[in-house]
Structures are given as structure tokens and as C-alpha cells.
Design a protein around this nucleic acid. Structure first.
Length: 252
DNA sequence: GCCAACGTTGGC
DNA sequence: GCCAACGTTGGC
């Protein structure tokens, strides 16, 4: 398998951008199952999406929230195609500088696969990355595993919203998500509050919307509508990019 | 094409 | 809500 691995960020908390809520949590994701990863407005993140193939595996990451970390596993279900939200002036990530004849921004479709049994917090990954010895509570990942974590873009360059993940690191994340072992009630914690959110009025976000108006049946409230989740990605998307690196930037 | 100013991401 | 890191923009 030439299958590759990736990590994509989304924001689980409500945040209104241009009148629309860009929230897209793991609950939203699980509810819609498949979503266009709209809104990425960063060249490097966009280039990485263009490299994706159907079946590639994706780590779903909660960003800009109380307990940032990996919350689910997903996979690419449609290869890169133009991100039509760039031409929608009402969209939070409208880009007036692009035109349909020459698409600048692209997105892929991503499909939910499963939840991480244990949310794998960024704080844990950082701890592993900064420790000379493998933290005892996750000793099962071994030194090699710890080494793989140290090389993750998530740890070495936080701001990229779409990142490549090496096979070794993927395996370690799987182990961590499956076995846990650290104090999940710690600094931020996440565990228990799991459900309840998505149900909140069923907002899903990005469904199959196309630019006309999608089907958002409910929600009369107007602007801050529920869906659009992926925008998150978008936002963060603009972050990362290359500056000094170029290491993974070779993407182009 | 360098670099300072500015804007944004996103952890804490 | 603060602010550090870092990407982007634009003057020169």
C-alpha cells in the first residue's frame, strides 16, 4: 500500500466568522460521516491535500479548544477538487482574489472511520517529544515510538492545519488511542463529556452542500448556522506554511 | 528579493 | 483572553 497518512485539524468549539459558525467537532464529524474539507486557505496545506488519494488515512484533530488532541480516525474519500466556498462571498473563507476559471483552493472529502477510544492530547505528545525517556504511563510505545512522536509536524511546527504523518507515528497514535494510560483528568481533560454535544440540534456541518444552498433545513436562526464545520480546517489552514522548513514543503 | 510590519493560529 | 510563533504582505 502506498497509502499515506495525514492529520487534519478542525475546531470543536463554536466560533463565528462572518456570521457563520465554523465549529466542527468529532461529534459533528461522526454525525455527517463524510464532509468536504472546505476552507483551507494556506498553500502548503492545499498542496498536501492535492497529494491525497482515496483510502489514505487521516487523524482528526481538535484544535483551538480546551483540550486539543487527536479524537478520531478517518480516511480520504474523494481526491482534491476545487473548493467552491472560495467563490461564495457569504462564506467565512471567501477569497475575492480567485476565480472559477482558475481555481486556487482545493479540498478533499474525508469520511469518519472511528473515534479514538482515548483522546490523544497534544499535551501528551509534547511531553513525549520533550522527554529523554519514554514517560512511564505510556512506556508501551517504546523508544522507537517516542522517536516517531518527536518527529511529528504537530509537535515540531504547530500551525499547519493539514499535515503529513509518517507510518510509524500513525501506529503509535493508534496504540495511544487504544490503550491510554495517562491521566486523562489532568490539565484539560476531556473524557466524560463525550456525548451530548452533537445532538444539539443536529447540526452537522458540511454535508453535501454544494454552492447553491445546501439543505440546511433546520435552523432558521440564520447566520450562525450550524454546518460548515470544516471551515475550521480552513482557518487553521492558513497557518502553516513554510518558512524555514521546506522540508515537508517539498510538497508542491 | 530582503525584511519590517502586520495578521493569524492556536496553545495555555 | 493573552501572547508567542510564524505566515503573509508590501515597501523599498
Amino acid at each position: 500500500m502506498s497509502q499515506k497518512h495525514w492529520l487534519m485539524k478542525a475546531e470543536p468549539d463554536s466560533r463565528i466568522v462572518k456570521g457563520k459558525d465554523v465549529k466542527f467537532s468529532v461529534d459533528d464529524f461522526e454525525a455527517v460521516k463524510t464532509t468536504p474539507w472546505e476552507g483551507v486557505r494556506n498553500a502548503e496545506a492545499r498542496n498536501l491535500m492535492k497529494e491525497m488519494h482515496v483510502g489514505d488515512k487521516v487523524l482528526f484533530y481538535h484544535s483551538n479548544c480546551k483540550n486539543p488532541g487527536i479524537t478520531a480516525f478517518a480516511e480520504v474519500s474523494k481526491e482534491a477538487y476545487p473548493d467552491y466556498t472560495a467563490w461564495d462571498s457569504t462564506h467565512p473563507y471567501y477569497d475575492a482574489k480567485t476565480d472559477k476559471a482558475n481555481p486556487k483552493w482545493y479540498m478533499v472529502d474525508v469520511t469518519f472511520v472511528s473515534r479514538a477510544k482515548h483522546l490523544v492530547p497534544l499535551s501528551l505528545l509534547r511531553t513525549i517529544a520533550s522527554s529523554t525517556d519514554v514517560p512511564e504511563e505510556v512506556s508501551y510505545i517504546g523508544e522507537e515510538g517516542a522517536k516517531a512522536i518527536k518527529g511529528m509536524a504537530l509537535v515540531t511546527r504547530g500551525r499547519l492545519s493539514v499535515q503529513r504523518v509518517e507510518g510509524e507515528a500513525w501506529k503509535v497514535i493508534e496504540q495511544l488511542a487504544e490503550r491510554g494510560g495517562w491521566d486523562e483528568g489532568g490539565p484539560s481533560k476531556q473524557k466524560t463529556k463525550a456525548k451530548a454535544k452533537s445532538s444539539a440540534r443536529g447540526r452537522k456541518k458540511a454535508t453535501p452542500k454544494r454552492d447553491d444552498e445546501e439543505q440546511k433545513e433546520e435552523e432558521p436562526e440564520g447566520s450562525e448556522g450550524p454546518r460548515d464545520g470544516v471551515a475550521v480546517a480552513a482557518k487553521s489552514a492558513q497557518t502553516g506554511s513554510r518558512k524555514r522548513t521546506a522540508e515537508e514543503a517539498d510538497v508542491v
